[in-house]
């Protein structure tokens, strides 16, 4: 069985995003970019399944500009066997990405597809679910634990009230939540090795997919700023403020 993982190049999680001064878009000039943290967890899970003998090959796919090659090289340095870039400079929204991934999946025929549950840039939390819909496959979103049992997949999912377990027919789509695993650190020799792994480039046109955005950003703005407050000297002063100034207790 092959496992395919989708990886997104996104703003680094330590960077605070700001709108451009004209409010047209988020200012990403000279901002550090990394692999979306949830996608690192997805990559780690694919590699662990392969290391445990549950997969014959792992493939990472990314959609976006040429720089996404770096993201794919990171996935390969973690241990993925090869990479596929669907290269485009058009802003890709979740539905378009799901369609592109579905087209790649029809060629590659993996038994399991793992994605991060959401990207920390647009915070959409859509692509995995959309991909499952387009393929007609079941989905195990927000996964905390994944167990393959023959042709079935058990997924323990993080839900609002606790943990839910579902049993899915394979092939299936899984989206990774925070507690699925802890991604490994990439070692230098593996970075060197990753440079020699195969990386193919495809295009939306070649795959025959229309990726025209359906949503237009009218404007972006900073949310109303919270004023920093005051420091209180002790618990008594704090309770007094909460009772008599804020009147919340």
């Amino acid at each position: 069985m092959k496992i395919l993982v989708a990886v997104k190049r996104a703003i680094d999680y330590n960077v605070k995003a700001r709108p451009k001064s004209d409010g047209s878009a988020v200012d990403l000039a000279n901002v550090k970019m990394s692999m979306n943290p949830f996608d690192e967890i997805a990559v780690e899970e694919a590699i662990r399944i392969q290391e445990a003998g549950g997969a014959t090959e792992t493939i990472a796919v990314s959609v976006g500009p040429k720089q996404c090659q770096e993201t794919l090289r990171t996935a390969m340095a973690m241990g993925v066997d090869r990479g596929i870039l669907v290269e485009t400079d058009v802003e890709t929204q979740p539905l378009a990405v799901a369609k592109l991934l579905a087209a790649v999946i029809k060629q590659e025929q993996p038994g399991l597809v793992i994605l991060g549950k959401q990207a920390i840039d647009d915070d959409s939390n859509q692509t995995g679910q959309m991909l499952a819909a387009l393929l007609g496959w079941p989905q195990g979103t927000f996964a905390a634990k994944v167990t393959i049992d023959g042709e079935r997949l058990k997924v323990a999912r993080e839900i609002d009230g606790g943990i839910q377990t579902v049993d899915l027919r394979m092939p299936a789509v899984v989206t990774a939540d925070l507690r699925l695993n802890e991604p490994r650190y990439v070692k230098l020799p593996n970075i060197m090795k990753a440079k020699k792994k195969p990386l193919d480039t495809l295009t939306p046109e070649g795959l025959g997919i229309d990726i025209t955005p359906r949503l237009t950003v009218v404007k972006v703005a900073e949310p109303p700023a919270r004023k920093g407050g005051v420091k209180v000297p002790d618990v008594e002063a704090l309770i007094d403020k909460l009772r008599n100034e804020a009147k919340v207790i």
């Binding site: 700001r18 950003v217 009218v218 972006v220 900073e222």
Partner: peptide, 28 residues
Amino acid sequence: AQISEITSVVSSDTFVRPIYAGNVMATV
């Protein structure tokens, strides 16, 4: 398309939603 986690309705086709961990509000 899906419009995720709207925080306000501007009109029947335009909505505000937080992106980038709520550091940016996008009108889409």
